[in-house]
């Protein structure tokens, strides 16, 4: 079993700031430690992206595993190491969209109600808000935000998640979604309009 906790040696290694390209080249040569390092670097980002798209842990878990399996299996085909990040995100987003379609066909509930995964927002508001009524209001608000995002079409949700939540540039998003910059801008525009409409109750307050 590989130990993913960072040792002092690992920290020193990180300080050396190994260039991504050489790391990918090493992984392409079959270096298992390079695979591990790539996973360590990107597992959280991939998890966050997939979770934003899917809204629950169990689906996200499946997508994370499938994403890295695909990436590792096809890494030797990647010609441009600089494109690794957008390629990785592309796989994660596409798998999330596919997963979501399958789930929609089965009519499964989309949102995570598992109490284990209490959001940071809920924790933060619970700490700082003394009035329990306000915590409930905040919970309701969070629920509505989730519903508003869930209500968006796939492409628009992907764009809004990557741009507004993950802070990716439009150019990067166009690479990840393999579409034009104009399409990204249009999707972003429509997504913002819908979100504004769906959250108007909280916006007007």
């Amino acid at each position: 079993m590989l130990n993913l906790k960072l040792s002092a040696k690992d920290h020193a290694h990180e300080d050396a700031l190994e260039k991504q390209e050489s790391l990918i080249e090493r992984a392409q040569d079959g270096d298992e430690l390079a695979y591990k390092e790539l996973y360590k670097r990107y597992c959280r980002v991939v998890y966050t992206l997939a979770y934003q798209m899917l809204g629950n842990h169990s689906d996200t878990d499946e997508v994370v595993q499938e994403t890295f399996i695909r990436v590792f299996k096809n890494l030797h085909r990647l010609r441009n190491a600089k494109a690794f990040t957008s390629w990785l995100y592309q796989i994660a987003i596409n798998l999330s969209i596919d997963h979501r379609k399958v789930r929609t066909r089965r009519r499964m509930l989309p949102l995570d109600d598992n109490p284990e995964f209490v959001s940071n927002y809920e924790l933060a508001t619970a700490k700082h808000v003394r009035n329990p009524g306000q915590v409930l209001e905040n919970k309701e608000l969070l629920k509505q935000i989730n519903f508003a995002i869930e209500d968006l079409p796939e492409q628009q949700r992907a764009v809004i998640v990557m741009h507004e939540v993950e802070g990716m540039s439009k150019k990067m998003i166009s690479e990840v979604l393999d579409c034009s910059l104009v399409t990204v801008r249009t999707n972003l525009h429509h997504a913002r309009k819908k979100l504004r409409q769906n959250l108007r109750k909280y916006i007007q307050e």
């Binding site: 959280r44 998890y47 966050t48 979770y51 934003q52 842990h57 995570d112 995964f117 209490v118 959001s119 940071n120 927002y121 608000l141 969070l142 935000i145 989730n146 508003a148 995002i149 809004i160 507004e164 939540v165 913002r192 979100l195 504004r196 959250l199 909280y202 916006i203």
Partner: peptide, 13 residues
Amino acid sequence: KASLLVQLRNVPQ
């Protein structure tokens, strides 16, 4: 405000 609300949707780690 809509953008800020969306950003509140943190992912539980």
